[in-house]
């Protein structure tokens, strides 16, 4: 199986401080891969490097296909309508018809004319996912899907994500502080600490690893099949 994303020996420094240190990570094609880690571990730096928003000091990043990004904090265009937010997601494409997104995420159709800044956090996250899908990506990078959202909203978003993954053959890199969610949802996972990958492997295996359960799962293991 070829990789959708291959990151090799990636190092990023900010003003002398090393944010990412020799990171190697792969996202397999049509699979969901998790990157978990605490605040300040370097997750956002890795996302920015992967999306081309910062230049790494060394290492290589290879992406097969189009990559789209659901950024941390949703990052709406608050004064624009949902429909305009979606259209801008396809900025690099010629085709900017939003109808297919309303078919995929019907909840968005009812709020298409509302200003994004007036939506709830869950609705904004849905718009952020829809906006990323407008780029017709093969690889989707989702930065903190669950951040600041109620558990019920997160469950609904996860349902949508599972459907999208199943129907669109998306390769997904899910960056999450909520390790339980990430390990439940993904097949493979990486653990980032202080800019280094300290553990990686099948998510089910990592979920049973005492170092992961102690640090990220509160000492309990609940992985659904």
């Amino acid at each position: 199986m070829t990789g959708a994303v291959q990151i090799d020996n990636l190092t990023v420094r900010y003003a002398g401080a090393t944010a990412l240190d020799d990171v190697t990570l792969a996202v397999a094609e049509n699979e969901m891969t998790a990157l978990i880690g605490a605040n300040g571990a370097g997750k956002s730096t890795l996302v920015k490097a992967l999306c081309g928003l910062i230049r790494p000091d060394s290492g290589t990043i290879t992406v097969h296909g189009r990559l789209a990004h659901v950024p941390e904090g949703r990052e709406m265009f608050p004064d624009m309508t949902v429909d305009d937010n979606l259209r801008l997601g396809a900025w690099r494409r010629r085709r900017r018809d939003t109808a297919p997104i309303y078919d995929l995420l019907p909840d968005l159709a009812a709020i298409r004319s509302r200003r994004a800044g007036t939506l709830s956090g869950g609705q904004q996250q849905m718009v952020a996912i829809g906006r990323a899908l407008m780029a017709d990506p093969e690889v989707l990078v989702i930065d903190e899907l669950s951040l600041g959202l109620a558990p019920m909203i997160v469950t609904s978003l996860v349902g949508h994500l599972r459907n999208l993954h199943a129907t669109r053959n998306l390769s997904v890199l899910l960056i999450e502080q909520n390790a339980r969610l990430a390990l439940d949802l993904c097949r493979h996972a990486y653990v980032l600490e202080s800019g280094r990958i300290v553990l990686h492997g099948p998510a089910a295996t990592l979920a049973r690893d005492p170092r992961v359960t102690a640090a990220y799962l509160g000492g309990h293991v609940t992985v659904t099949p």
Binding site: E75, R96, R131
Partner: peptide, 22 residues
């Protein structure tokens, strides 16, 4: 227009504009 929206997008949220590739 999409070009006008892209200009407005840069004004509204510069980071998000970069995220969508503007």
């Amino acid at each position: 227009t999409d070009l006008g929206r892209a200009l407005t997008a840069c004004a509204s949220n510069r980071y998000a504009a970069q995220v969508v590739g503007i």
